[in-house]
Design a protein around this nucleic acid. Structure first.
Lengths: 139, 139
DNA sequence: TCTTGACTTGGAGTGTACTCCAAGTTGTAA
DNA sequence: TTACAACTTGGAGTACACTCCAAGTCAAGA
């Protein structure tokens, strides 16, 4: 049952892999969203592949609207171990529902934009349309 | 060719209709995203139905990731009249594509969350799974 | 007329999430 | 060993989008 040695990355490589900036990674560690990273003798941070995967997971949650505070809470549950699994599942289900609502809103706005594009194109072909159909835009 | 009289709203009613706060509506006017509103003799703002529709359109663009600066640009084009129609169409098409990319990312994250939920549930039923499958999360 | 609530302005303050900087240390290649 | 890049820290600064406040004006009902 020995640990499989994992290749280890510098913060620069971690930034490249995750798409986060080095400053952002340090910032996430500073606010407690990422744990205090392993260090080389020099004090330089090192990251395992597993940790990089974790960071990518974070970027997904963030990109889908989860706040840093919510992610910190999720992380805290993770650190508490198996007992927190049910709550972690329910957080993920809740977040998935939020994503679904967001998708629905985006689709609706796409339909609205399509409608407007059609009207604009009509107005381009026949300027009279423009007189009858006033695009509602904040005037 | 007389103007159809439109019912006119106070800023409070505008806020209720659009979901924006009164402060936000004044802020949008202050930064030039909304034009200087019509006033009653008292100086109080008034809004037509058409203007309210325009504000709702703004909230849609905002909710789908357009920045206030981009919306200001779009508004400026609108004020320039018909000559700007082609650019307005291309901005909307571009924005629609951004929305599509966003939808794709959201769907992908949903699939990832489903995968994780499955794994969590397996771990709940059979704690041994938890030992073998380490959730990558920033550790 | 009095009171209460809605509205006005300019400007200051807030929350989120970074982003940058200075000053110092470490790693590597010539 | 001398460059020079990469890394470290704490803390300050920034961007965006509001949000709140004070001090004053206006409107409508009892």
């Amino acid at each position: 049952m020995s640990d499989i040695p994992e290749t280890v990355s510098t913060i620069k490589q971690a930034a490249e892999f995750t798409g986060l900036s080095e400053d952002t990674i340090r910032y996430y560690e500073k606010i407690g969203l990422l744990p205090y990273a392993d260090r080389k003798a020099s004090g330089h941070r090192t990251y395992s592949k597993h940790q990089l995967d974790g960071m990518v997971f974070l970027t997904r949650l963030k990109a889908t609207g989860m706040t840093l505070e919510e992610m910190k809470h999720f992380r805290k549950l993770y650190e508490m171990g198996e007992a927190s699994l049910p709550e972690r599942v329910s957080i993920l289900i809740e977040h998935k529902n939020r994503i679904q609502n967001e998708i629905d809103r985006l689709l609706e706005t796409q339909r609205m934009i399509d409608y407007k594009i059609d009207k604009f194109k009509e107005a381009l072909v026949n300027p009279e349309v423009n007189k009858k159909w006033r695009s509602p835009f904040a005037d």
